[in-house]
């Protein structure tokens, strides 16, 4: 762990983007998330860490209602995005997901061209008026995802033909293209090699300028490297949430300390 870098992790925006209140999630009879209260800040990278099965991915998926696709999943409590409850009956999850984008564990580009992958979101949401604007959006998204230089000459090539790291950055570009306010990332580097991981991590740090980023990770080093805030989940509970520096240097809960020092997990 690079402690020098850890010290640089400072929160520079204290506006609350997402606020979860008493969130409970059930899968059938099993209580997967218990009483989670958390305020996620804007323009900040928040990392969710914890042992496997602790509910961190489940909680991440409640933030853009991807859990709706699981029939037995039930969510209680309130999750406010800019003060509006996303589980309100008036909310259409489709509209929500345009504002809260998601990047998945395994790179999952569509079996279409690189251009079409990135252009898909703007197209279905009608974000552009003509081809020139769409071209512009695609280019800027690819630039934000640090992929433009590598693919600008082969935008019509299939997205699935890229390397793993490039595919994941393409997925990030695809998510960024719809100009979301929050970007959820579910272990975005777990299928990548160390070099690609480093590139994506660097990218996450840059994305912070424009979005609130929430990242689930298995790697504590990664959490320490990229995030300003860290939340530690254990058995469906949010055990501790605070500045990354504090969590990794002076954890207040003994369970957090055990996990960070490698005794549980």
């Amino acid at each position: 762990m690079n402690d020098m870098r850890l010290m640089e992790r400072v929160v520079d925006d204290t506006r609350i983007k997402i606020s979860a209140k008493d969130v409970q999630v059930w899968y059938g009879d099993s209580h997967a998330i218990k009483d989670v209260n958390i305020d996620i800040l804007d323009k900040t990278v928040t990392a969710f860490i914890g042992p496997s099965g602790c509910g961190k991915s489940t909680f991440l998926r409640t933030l853009n209602r991807m859990n709706d696709t699981i029939p037995i999943c039930r969510v209680e409590g309130e999750i406010l995005l800019d003060g509006e409850n996303i589980y309100d009956r008036k909310v259409d999850p489709v509209q929500l997901r345009a504002r809260v984008g998601m990047v998945f564990q395994k790179p999952n580009p569509f079996p279409k061209s690189i251009y079409d992958n990135v252009a898909y979101g703007p197209r279905i949401h009608g974000l552009t008026r003509n081809k020139a604007e769409l071209d512009e959006v695609v280019e800027s998204a690819l630039k934000k995802a640090a992929l433009w230089k590598e693919v600008k000459d082969r935008l019509t090539a299939p997205g699935t033909g890229l390397s793993g790291g490039q595919q994941q950055r393409l997925c990030i570009a695809r998510a960024v293209a719809t100009s979301p306010e929050v970007l959820l990332m579910d272990e975005p580097c777990s299928a990548l090699d160390p070099i690609a991981t480093a590139q994506v991590e660097e990218l996450i740090d840059e994305l912070r300028e424009n979005f609130s980023v929430v990242i689930v990770t298995h790697s504590m080093q990664q959490a320490a490297r990229v995030s300003q805030k860290t939340a530690f989940f254990h058995m469906g509970n949010l055990v501790e949430y605070g500045d990354t520096t504090q969590i990794f240097t002076k954890p207040s809960d003994p369970r957090t300390e055990s996990y960070i020092t490698g005794r549980i997990g």
């Binding site: 991807m66 696709t69 997901r97 984008g101 898909y120 279905i124 949401h125």
Partner: peptide, 19 residues
């Protein structure tokens, strides 16, 4: 994963299925 990807960027169910 393809369905997730489409839903994740805000495609509706019908769009996901037909696209």
């Amino acid at each position: 994963s393809i369905k997730d990807a489409a839903l994740g960027i805000g495609a509706s169910k019908t769009q996901t299925v037909f696209h």
